[in-house]
Structures are given as C-alpha cells and as structure tokens.
C-alpha cells in the first residue's frame, strides 16, 4: 500500500477546474494580457465560468483591463478568495496587482521570491468550480514560466496559446517559446497573430504596421495549429484602457470575429476531448 502525498489527500484548490490554459509569448507587448482578457470574456459569453491567474508579477495588466484595479483579496479558511469581475461571479481573477499597497509600487523581486508567490497563487487561491482557468504570463522563458509549468504539471493543463505580432523580431522570440513548450512537455494549442494589419477608420485602407503573416508562417513551419489573426483595432485598445467588455460592445468591429473564432476553437477542442 503506497502513501498518498498530502497535497493529493486534501482536496486541492484546483480540483474543480476543468481546463487550464496558458497564454505565452517570448516577446513583451504583443497582447498576451489582451488575448487572455478577451478570451475570458468570450468564454463567459458562451456560458462558461472562467478564472484568470495573472503571473506577470512585475507588470500586472489584467486588473485594469477588467476594471477591478484597487480591489482587495480576502483570506478564507482554504486560502485566498479571488476577485470577482461581475455579479454572477462568472469571471474571477487573481493578480499581484491586488496585493500592492500603491498601484505604482514596483515589485523588485529576484527569481526565488517570484517563484514562491507563483506556487502560492497556484495552490492557495480558492477558485471553486471553473470551466476554464487562463494563466497569463510575463514575456520570456525564465523563473515565472518554469515555476508555473512545474506547479501546474500535476493538473495536466490543456496547453498553451502562443501570442505573437507579425514582424520577424517578434517571431524570433516566439520560436524560442515554442522550444520552451517542447522542452517542458507543454502542449501547444496554437498560435495567435495579433496586431495584424490596421484598417484606417477614415478611408478603410489597410496598413500592415507590424508586417503581416509571420504568425501563420511560423505555425506552418512549427507544425502547430494557427488560431487566427487579430487586427489592430483602436476600439479594442480603448476598451482595454477603460476596462469595458469589448466582446459585448463591439460585435461589428474588425477584431471581434477573430477573437470569437479563437474562443470557438478552444471550446471545440475541449468538447471533443471530453466526449
């Protein structure tokens, strides 16, 4: 008779979570938090309960994007209660942004301290029952990423969505992130090409400010699914600034169908997996 390790004997805080998704990119500022936020909103509109774990400790963006900056995290018997974004409690969020005394405080931490907090985020947040937990990460392939993947391994995450912008400088970093996924045994759900083309709101001329097609080409080259191109859309940027629900407010915008399509592919994948 073998001894059950303590962490398994107790009911873990992630036990009620159906699917765990990571949003990764080697490059910063390509839209990881944007895609995480919009994906959460799109899944919520599809009737799912979604949690977001923001492990970007030095630059947490999600609280503002969901207009919950300044909210506090409460402690209960089984751990930290995440912040609920809406009244129905269908989106919950945990971020270091809620633990800072002042919003401009810098988190000047070296690796070991970041790793300890990430472990705590993964074991001690009381998510309850969730259909999806989306983990938003900082750029790179370092402490935060290694710790997150290691701590989540026992919960068998669905995989990673890799975000890139189309230009070669960004693709180069995402190629390295693909290698990271391969080395750590993390499945790649697919690649999203963000900021792909800008349609001038005045004359409808499309300009490829950050080039075009790099993400799709990389997906083909690496033999991973391509989830779609999200165009540069000032309405999307504006919504994220003000913490408004883009998916509900702008169904006619150019970015909407792309985001909805990405969410649908993830839903399809999970339904085929569970059937």
């Amino acid at each position: 008779l073998s001894i059950v390790p303590l962490s398994f004997a107790e009911r873990s805080n992630l036990a009620g979570v159906q699917h765990i998704l990571l949003v990764l990119s080697g490059k910063g500022g390509v839209g990881k938090s944007t895609i995480s936020t919009e994906l959460a909103l799109a899944l919520q509109h599809a009737g799912k309960k979604v949690g977001i774990l923001d492990v970007d400790l030095c630059g947490p963006s999600i609280p503002r994007m969901l207009k919950v900056q300044g909210k506090g995290v409460h402690q209960c018997d089984s751990g930290w209660v995440p912040v609920f974004v809406d009244q129905d409690k269908s989106i919950s969020l945990m971020s270091i942004g809620f633990l800072l005394e002042k919003p401009d405080d810098a988190v000047v931490w070296r690796g070991p301290k970041k790793n300890a907090l990430i472990k705590q985020f993964i074991s001690d947040v009381t998510w309850g029952e969730l259909d999806f937990l989306i983990v938003d990460t900082p750029p790179g392939t370092s402490d935060e990423h290694i710790s997150t993947v290691e701590s989540l391994r026992q919960y068998m995450p669905l995989g990673a969505v890799l975000v890139t912008t189309p230009q070669a400088v960004s693709i180069g970093d995402v190629r390295r992130e693909l290698t990271f996924c391969k080395k750590t045994g993390l499945r790649v759900i697919g690649i999203v090409e963000n900021m792909s083309g800008f349609v001038c709101p005045h004359c409808l001329e499309c300009t490829n400010i950050f080039s075009k097609g790099g993400g799709e080409e990389l997906a083909r080259h690496a033999r991973v699914p391509f989830l779609g191109c999200v165009p540069l859309d000032p309405q999307l940027a504006q919504c994220l600034e003000e913490g408004r629900d883009f998916i509900r407010e702008f169904p006619k915008s150019s970015a909407f169908p792309a985001l909805a399509h990405i969410a649908q592919q993830i839903l399809d994948r999970t339904s085929s997996q569970s059937s």
Partner: peptide, 17 residues
C-alpha cells in the same frame, strides 16, 4: 499613426490618461 493614403492621424494606442 498617419494613414499613408488619407494622411489622417489615428491614435492606435490611445493616450486615455
């Protein structure tokens, strides 16, 4: 960003604050 066609400037990343 100044559109190369119509020369009208758009704030793609709006300075809301």
């Amino acid at each position: 960003f100044v559109c190369p066609k119509c020369k009208i400037e758009t704030q793609i990343f709006p300075p809301t604050t």
